[in-house]
Computed example of a mutant assay.
Amino acid sequence: MNTAKKWLIFWVVLAALFVGFFGIVLSGNFPQFAIPFSVFASDDKAKKKEELPKLKILALRDVNDQELLKQQMEKVEALNQAFKDSANFSSSQAMADTIEKIYGSAKEGKNSFDLYRKIYPMVSSEENGFVSVNLIGFGQRLVNDQPMTVQRQVWSFTDTNGRRHDYTVRLRFNEQELAELTAEEGSEVKSVITTDDTYLDKSADFETAWSEVVRRGTDTQLYREMKKAGLNSDQTEFKALEKSIEVTDPSGFFDLFKETRGDLTHAYLAGFYHTNTPTDGQSDYYFRVPTSEKNIAEFLVVYDRLQQKIVSINRN
Rank of each mutant, 00 (worst) to 15 (best):
L17D: 05
V19L: 15
V19W: 13
V19E: 08
F21S: 13
I24F: 02
V25H: 11
G28P: 02
F30D: 07
A34D: 15
I35C: 03
I35P: 01
P36T: 01
F37C: 02
F37G: 04
V39Y: 09
V39M: 09
F40P: 00
A41K: 07
D44M: 14
D44Y: 11
E50F: 09
E51S: 06
L52M: 12
P53E: 12
P53T: 08
K56M: 12
V63Q: 07
N64G: 13
Q66S: 15
L69S: 03
M73A: 10
E74V: 15
K75H: 08
E77T: 14
E77D: 15
A78Y: 04
L79C: 06
L79P: 04
S91I: 14
S92W: 08
Q93L: 11
T98V: 09
I99G: 02
I102H: 05
I102W: 05
I102N: 08
Y103L: 11
Y103A: 06
A106P: 12
A106C: 10
E108G: 00
F113I: 15
Y116H: 13
R117C: 08
M122H: 07
M122P: 05
S125P: 03
E126A: 14
E127W: 06
G129A: 05
V131E: 14
V133S: 12
V133H: 08
V133W: 07
F138C: 06
F138I: 03
R141C: 00
R152Q: 15
R152V: 14
Q153D: 12
V154P: 10
T158W: 03
D159N: 13
T160K: 14
T160G: 11
R164E: 11
T168E: 15
T168F: 03
V169N: 05
N174L: 01
Q176F: 11
A179V: 07
L181R: 03
T182A: 01
E184N: 08
E184Y: 10
E184S: 08
S187R: 07
E188M: 09
V189H: 05
T194S: 15
T194L: 13
D196E: 12
D197W: 13
Y199K: 12
D201R: 03
A204G: 03
A209Y: 02
R215I: 08
R215M: 11
G217E: 02
D219M: 04
D219C: 06
D219V: 00
T220L: 04
Q221W: 06
Q221A: 13
L222Y: 02
K227L: 10
K228M: 14
N232W: 05
N232S: 14
Q235D: 15
F238W: 06
A240Q: 14
I245D: 04
T248G: 00
P250L: 10
S251D: 14
G252R: 02
F257S: 05
R261F: 10
L264R: 10
L269D: 03
T275Q: 02
N276P: 06
Q282I: 15
Y286K: 01
Y286A: 04
V289F: 05
V289K: 01
T291A: 05
S292M: 04
K294S: 12
I296G: 01
E298T: 06
F299T: 02
L300Y: 04
V301Q: 04
Y303D: 03
D304R: 03
R305H: 01
L306P: 03
Q307I: 05
Q308P: 07
K309W: 08
K309V: 08
K309L: 11
I310V: 15
I313A: 06
N316L: 12
N316P: 00
